[in-house]
Design a protein around this nucleic acid. Structure first.
Lengths: 197, 197
DNA sequence: CATTAATGTAACCCGATGGTAACATTATGT
DNA sequence: ACATAATGTTACCATCGGGTTACATTAATG
């Protein structure tokens, strides 16, 4: 049965499969076409090229939008905000493909990557706004750089979650069991409380 | 002039050059041999294979040992410790090859990578010990997970420095100028002071 | 039903890759 | 000086990569 839409979905599914199995970096148009059981010419015809196929794939699966709280129901107190940050740990740990995309963005600077990073940027700034609104007005706001704080912490979580795929311990903290991640989670909480309170 | 030692150094130098230029991941034995102006057969003969060549290269240039303070002259007060952490920012930012190796370790889990990671692990734990020694004995030590704290912060710095090669802003913090990194540096200081004091 | 456009495949080109075998050159030690 | 081992090169192989052209098949449209 000849059906363009169906074929396109097959191809995107093939990207998904291979990205999970071998990583996005080691992905080629030949391998994807082979996996999809289809001619690679169709990738050029339907998507315009391999880059554009990756874009279609990445934008289809918007994993990064996962645990982002709706803006209107932003955190009203500190512990809500902490929960959101902890949610990032859960999201990263439970979504191998998200780690794969993060890794990919760290090596390639394609136009596709820029698009995706713009979305991730939105996520981060939303989180930052949420935390900024929690700061007590009486506090010396200029002394707390919320943007940089959230940047550093989310960066740390992203790094450690990626690292957990490659080794089982980082700086003495185990990354392959719940205990280690609980320690990281508690440390995150500790930092937020002591810095923002 | 035929000289095995000299040739080996040429080959390792070629790895160095290409790793800076194109990244470790996109490195092949053919390209390295070409860059070194030598036959690739010698790589097999002298190093045993490409993996082993990479190991020789990585272990020769122990960049990661850079800004590690000698154990006997560990930090005696909190601001010394903060300086060490800030030093990590300087090291990462001024050493493109170190960022390249970090990136590589995040994707590959080769036997070579394990060796290097073990060394990096030493660096981190030394830093952690230094900070732990700064904790006031009277303080409730169990409430502060120094290992996890240092892990999270160094992970964040590593991530952001790698990110700076690919994009110029993260979560609203510019990564391509001094101002942004000063903000990160101050935030680091802020966290350490408020958590450990 | 017949024409045409959409969908799909096979085959090829070219360059690069990892890997090996055969051969040439230089150094070394006796 | 000569035999031998170390050093080095050329050439080749099979495979895979991205990319294009020409052709076959099916669906849609009059």
């Amino acid at each position: 049965m000849k059906n363009r839409h169906h074929t396109e979905q097959d191809i995107i599914a093939a990207v998904d499969t291979l990205a999970r199995r071998k990583g996005i970096q080691k992905l080629g148009i030949n391998a994807v076409a082979r996996q999809a059981g289809v001619s690679k010419v169709l990738i050029y015809r339907y998507f315009g090229g391999f880059e554009e196929l990756l874009a279609a794939w990445a934008l289809k699966n918007s994993y990064w939008a996962g645990h982002l709280p709706p803006p209107e129901t932003g955190p009203r107190n500190l512990s809500d905000g902490i929960d959101i940050l902890k949610g990032q740990i859960t999201t990263m740990r439970s979504t191998p493909l998200l780690r794969e995309i993060e890794r990919w963005l760290l090596l390639e600077n394609s136009t596709v990557g820029s698009t995706i990073m713009a979305r991730l940027e939105e996520r981060g700034t939303a989180l930052t706004r949420a935390f900024s609104s929690l700061l007590k007005p009486g506090k010396n706001d200029t002394s707390i750089d919320t943007e940089a704080l959230i940047a550093l912490l989310t960066a740390g979580v992203a790094y450690l979650s990626m690292k957990s795929d490659r080794c089982n311990v980082y700086n003495g903290v185990p990354l392959d069991n719940e205990e280690g991640w609980n320690r990281i989670s508690r440390t995150l909480e500790n930092i937020i409380q002591k810095v923002l309170d």
